[in-house]
Amino acid sequence: MMTQVPASEPDFTPLDDVFVRKHMGVPDIDVTGWTLAVEGLVERPLRLDMAAVLALGTERLPAFHECFGSPLAPDVPTRAVAQVEWAGVPLAALLDRAVPGAAARHVWFEGADSGSFQGQDGVTYVKDLPLDVARDDVFLAHRMNGWPLRAEHGFPLRAVVPRMFGTNSVKWLTRIVLADRRADNVFTTRFYTRVLPGDSVPSPVREVDVSSKWFVPGKVAAGKVDLGGRAWSTTEVVRVDVSVDGGPWEPASLAAPGSGPTWQRFSVTRELAPGAHVIRCRARDRAGRVQPLAGARNAVHEAGVEAGVEAVGEAEDRAEA
């Protein structure tokens, strides 16, 4: 029977380990000349420099952050996920100042990255969201884990959309446009679309799938071993099952969800004989979604673990002596 354990403080991924994705390179931005425009169907267009952004105040948002993967291979698992404490300001603070017009229905987010992508020239990275979703969910971040954004992570300002794939969290943000229609851009209409179960037409890649991933070393000492990982979804993960060496699925201990859009820890203790082992994990969320066994980008995660006859640390200590 699965054991539910109390929620724990969020564990944040070290910045050096946070995945990096770029479609058209990393733009070189001088913050002294950088501005963010808020325009389109608004009563009061805005243009803010970084001092003006910082003057809005700073809030914190701990959240998991997952890469969807290549838009050319939407069913291939990437397992790229991190958890970050973002610092910045909710988009709603800017929208309240700009005052969306009555006809505004969508928000476009444009980054400074531009160039060629998949044979098409003059491309600028643009994503869009419905206005009500953007107002409630989008966070504009200028810091990660207490540090200013690095260039590769979107310096000086980026959008963050919790519980949505990272493709929606536009980096190197320069322009926010309110419009009465969706943006006509290759990254909104051609790339990052997929046909969801039960549908017949493609939808934008937005909400994450239910997923889980082992966070374990490749080598462990044989004997009783603690194995753990993380699970996440758009809603609470209610169960994680694990299988060792093709054995039956058995419930793991699962931490209760935190107060924000953070992942949940799971763990299990197993006796591992010396040799190679294969472990699998499978999550289920409160909406009833379950990770598929195969054939999908969020398919069950399988990891290999080599159990030795002695603790890895002991062997390393002797090698150094």
Rank of each mutant, 00 (worst) to 15 (best):
V5I: 14
P6T: 03
S8N: 14
P14T: 02
P14S: 06
V26E: 05
P27D: 02
D28H: 04
I29Q: 02
T32D: 09
G33N: 05
L46R: 04
R47S: 13
L48S: 04
A52P: 03
T58A: 13
H65F: 14
P71L: 00
P71H: 02
P71Y: 00
A73Q: 08
V76C: 06
A87S: 13
A93L: 09
A98N: 08
G101M: 06
A103L: 12
R105P: 01
V107W: 00
S114I: 01
Q118T: 05
Q118K: 08
Y125T: 00
P130S: 05
R135D: 15
R135N: 10
D136R: 11
R143T: 07
R150W: 02
E152M: 11
H153D: 00
L157G: 01
A159E: 06
P162Y: 03
G166W: 03
T167G: 10
K171R: 12
R175G: 05
D180G: 12
R182F: 11
R182Q: 15
R182A: 14
A183T: 08
F191S: 01
G198L: 02
S203L: 11
P204F: 02
V205K: 00
V210R: 13
G218R: 14
G218P: 05
K219S: 14
G223N: 06
V238M: 07
L254K: 09
R265T: 12
F266N: 06
L272Q: 11
A276G: 13
V278I: 13
R280K: 15
C281M: 02
R282K: 15
V290C: 12
V290K: 12
P292K: 07
A299N: 09
V300R: 06
A307Q: 07
